[in-house]
Amino acid sequence: MRLYDSEVTSRLLLGTAQYPSPQVLMEAIRASASEIITVSLRRETAGGSGAGFWELLQQLGARILPNTAGCHTVRDAVTTAHMAREVFGTPWIKLEVIGHSDTLQPDVFALVEAARILSDEGFQVFPYTTEDLVVGERLIEAGCEVLMPWGAPIGSGQGLLRRDGLRAMRAHFPDVPLIVDAGIGRPSDAAEAMELGMDAVLLNTAVAKAGDPVLMARAMAQAVEAGRAGFEAEPMERRDMGVPSTPVLGLAELM
């Protein structure tokens, strides 16, 4: 899978928040085999509250995708992106502009505007968006080469609420990497996203808040791999009626 100028093998992107401990986080990332992890920026305290996490990131060696989580305006998101580019030394930015505090639905109007500004400034934008096709087109016009539609509200674990919308996106943007970002709760959700032809899945809470995050990270990796293979293998058509799989020809007459 190609994301901007990078070739990526793993189709699972993992968030780093809410794990029970840094140790569990590190083990979960290893178990997930993710090559890309998402991170954020928050207020530093004097003496260095962020230094420990920074050192941990250096050890991991994974590619970092900083986010603009919590931003509600274009200005907030653009400023945060600039700060992230300097700290993490990457042009990649997971662009979130939140429009609604309860659903954490993206403000797609502000998203398109921020995406245009950042793309013009040399950022490689990964926009957290809805499955709306026109918004997707506007984001691509703005310079985005990846789209990240939500599956369900962030942190809800509800799975894919609008499968038809994701299917339509796949058909409408055959050559644009599509990453389902947010809403995945279980491995079956991740597998389903991949079976729909999504290129990758980005998740966090589903792993971090599982009873055993490391085991769930492995399960998600397997689900993503299985779902992708299932998509590439082209599933059979559904039938309305049962059709015997064992040949009828040659069946004995025993009555």
């Binding site: 968030g15 780093t16 928040a17 809410q18 794990y19 986080l25 998402t38 991170v39 954020s40 920026l41 928050r42 207020r43 530093e44 260095g48 509250s49 962020g50 230094a51 996490f53 920074w54 990131l57 900083p66 986010n67 989580a69 945060t80 600039h82 700060m83 300097e86 700290v87 993490f88 962030i154 942190g155 966090n204 809470t205």
Partner: peptide
């Protein structure tokens, strides 16, 4: 304000400064 510009950036009373660092995120 980029790292390079900090040395030339003068502060005035009432300025709002934000200092951010890496944090876990989704």
């Amino acid at each position: 304000v980029s790292r390079a510009k900090r040395v030339d950036t003068r502060l005035t009373a009432g300025d709002r400064l934000e200092v951010l660092s890496p944090m876990q995120g989704g």
